[in-house]
Design a protein around this nucleic acid. Structure first.
Lengths: 195, 195
DNA sequence: TGTACATCAGTGAACGCGCGTTCACTGATGTAC
DNA sequence: TGTACATCAGTGAACGCGCGTTCACTGATGTAC
């Protein structure tokens, strides 16, 4: 059962998954190839049998993180407004804020992605669009495309608020900000569209 | 006029200012000490005559960036709602988005600050609180403290939306997001408080 | 006023270390006969 | 079925380079007499 296609595929997926966690925890520039491979139980030498460069892994891991978030959080949520509220309450929970490596890749990596190569930004864009389609389908079940922009702005607002809550040293204020985030997000999804 | 207190103070300030720009452009982990000093027209060797460590400069530069943003943008804005609208329209302009080294330090550095040392996070927290006091004074002129949380959430929302607009590879969508950001921010400041 | 000396901002080379990447090699597994 | 060979996932040392930090030194400026 060694060196079959499935085995190599599994190893590749393991690298991508553990890299996603490490990148969120230590940042892109803060995570070295040797560490990323060690996290997957391998040595640095075999890295290039799986990816053509660190950039390649970063782009792949970002795409994987967003796909996973869509599958585990967004697609699992109830349809309609109820599902959005579920997502928002999970997002602004102290648990999500305090477990960065299990948490939202947008909040963990967004400013570094903005500085990244085109490949990483493209992978991010594609993944984010899938996420917000899930939002839009719940914002406007009968006409999802009409709610895409609002969904996109909701994602930006959620990520920035979470980052800010993580950056503040005043824990109490950081917690209150999460509660305010819930209020603002709910107000946004309940607001009339008038573009 | 050389080696006076004023001269050394000026040089220190020059390092802090150019470092602020470089950190926003290349990130904290992406900016080396030699580069930061070269930006100020000096060599790496004299760095430790000004700062005790790179962390020390980072914390100092973050504080300086926020102080400058407060002085140049927030304090300059008109009082009341009109000033807030000015700030919001500047913030979501394509110019601000596209000139990262002259732009908002929150958007450029927030997720890296969340991963930083306590000193940097504390410097950031102090600076952010000054900024949001400027917001709160315009949100609720007769009772600014009552609007602090709303002001803080506005900052998070603005920073996250700007980061997202910078990360997307679809320029048209990124531009539309800025417009949506203006609408959302104005809706937030005009909303009734009910906490 | 002129000269000798003290001060200190700034230089540039070096420290050990980890970076991304390359490559000769190992050894367990699968295949051929 | 047993043996010889091919495959290839994975190792680990090495490449040149830039990192944060240290330090002996330079040389222009300011001070003392």
């Amino acid at each position: 059962m060694r060196y079959t296609k499935e085995h190599k595929q599994q190893t590749r997926q393991r690298i991508i998954t553990t890299a996603g966690r490490r990148l969120k925890r230590d940042g892109i520039d803060g995570s070295g190839v040797a560490t990323l491979m060690k996290d997957a139980g391998l040595t640095n030498g075999t890295f290039y049998a799986y990816f053509s460069s660190k950039d390649d892994l970063v782009a792949t891991a970002v795409a994987d993180q967003l796909r996973t978030q869509h599958a585990n959080i967004v697609a699992q949520a109830a349809p309609g407004r109820a599902g959005l509220e579920q997502i928002i309450r999970w997002y602004f929970s102290t648990e999500q804020r305090d477990t960065i490596d299990d948490g939202c890749p947008n909040a963990a990596l967004l400013d570094e992605i903005a500085r990244s190569t085109d490949a990483a930004r493209q992978a991010y864009t594609d993944g984010a669009l899938v996420l917000i389609d899930g939002f839009a389908a719940r914002l406007a079940p009968h006409d999802p495309p009409s709610a895409r922009l609002k969904a996109l702005s909701l994602l930006g607002m959620m990520a920035g608020t979470l980052q800010l809550s993580r950056a503040l040293t005043d824990r109490q204020l950081a917690d209150q900000l999460l509660e305010q985030g819930i209020r603002n997000a709910l107000a946004l999804i309940d607001a009339e569209q008038h573009e």
